[in-house]
Amino acid sequence: MILVQNEDFDLNTEYEALRQDCPAIGAIVTFVGLVRDFNEGDDVSSLFLEHYPGMTEKVLQGICDQARERWTLNGIRVIHRIGEMHPSDQIVFVGVSSAHRGEAFAACEFIMDFLKTQAPFWKKEQTPEGGRWVDARDSDTSAADRWNELTK
């Protein structure tokens, strides 16, 4: 399940949706990203996210499909919020269920790493100096590149 939405999400609801009382599930790994109140040494009062409707969901689905090709997974849930958010607001949820913890941890990290580098989201921060667009981080690109090296 992939959602791109303005509304917040409930971690317990998403966890229970992954669990589904399935005895084949031995592990559930979740990641929740939060809006920080700082970036590049500046205070951040809000963050506005835009996306490319239709394309964003297609890219996210492709990332999840790649994860399913690499690991045996029972379920994947990805929620990414758009619109205006403030420090400590939830921005992204990635949840993975699997028979084994190693596969669940790896798949969750893989999905998050590629989401950060491939999904068409644009972030604009509000700082005391005004608004600014946020560039991709070299560390995010390096994290995704690591997965590509593992498949060679």
Rank of each mutant, 00 (worst) to 15 (best):
Q66W: 02
G26H: 01
L3G: 05
A119I: 02
F48K: 09
E57T: 08
I82V: 15
V92A: 00
S142I: 09
V35D: 00
D42Y: 03
D37H: 07
V35A: 04
D140Q: 07
Q66A: 12
V44P: 00
R101W: 12
M1S: 14
L11M: 12
A106Q: 13
C64A: 12
A67K: 02
A106W: 06
F9R: 03
P87H: 00
I2A: 05
A17R: 15
R19G: 03
L34T: 08
D65H: 11
P23C: 03
G83F: 11
V96L: 05
H51R: 01
S88H: 09
E14G: 06
N74Q: 13
S45R: 04
Q118I: 05
C22E: 11
K116L: 08
G62S: 04
G62M: 05
R137Y: 11
G75Y: 04
F38N: 12
S98M: 08
I111G: 03
L47Y: 04
D113T: 05
V94F: 05
V78P: 02
G102F: 11
N148K: 13
I2D: 07
G83C: 10
V35G: 00
K58P: 00
D140K: 07
E69C: 12
F93N: 04
F93E: 01
N148L: 14
E125N: 09
W133M: 11
W147I: 02
D135M: 09
I76C: 10
E149A: 15
G41W: 02
T141V: 15
V44A: 01
V35N: 00
R19L: 11
L150I: 09
E84Y: 03
G130A: 01
G54F: 10
T72H: 14
I2M: 07
S97Q: 04
V94N: 00
L11A: 14
L73S: 02
E40D: 15
R77E: 11
D43L: 13
V32G: 00
E7M: 01
S97I: 05
A136L: 14
R146S: 11
S139G: 02
V29P: 01
P120I: 05
H100I: 08
P53K: 01
V29D: 07
T30A: 08
V4E: 09
L11T: 15
N74G: 13
G95K: 06
D42N: 10
R77K: 15
Q126E: 10
A143M: 12
H100Y: 07
H100D: 05
I91T: 06
N148I: 09
L34Q: 06
N74T: 03
E50G: 00
N39C: 08
A24Y: 13
R132Q: 06
H86N: 11
A119Y: 06
F38L: 06
F48A: 08
A119S: 12
I82G: 04
S46Y: 00
A24V: 13
T30C: 13
S139V: 15
L34A: 04
K116S: 02
I82A: 09
C108S: 08
S88M: 09
S46H: 00
L34C: 09
I63H: 01
G95Y: 06
F105I: 12
K152E: 12
F110D: 01
V35Q: 00
F38Y: 14
A106P: 01
G130L: 08
A17M: 11
A27E: 06
A17S: 13
I111L: 07
R137M: 12
F93I: 09
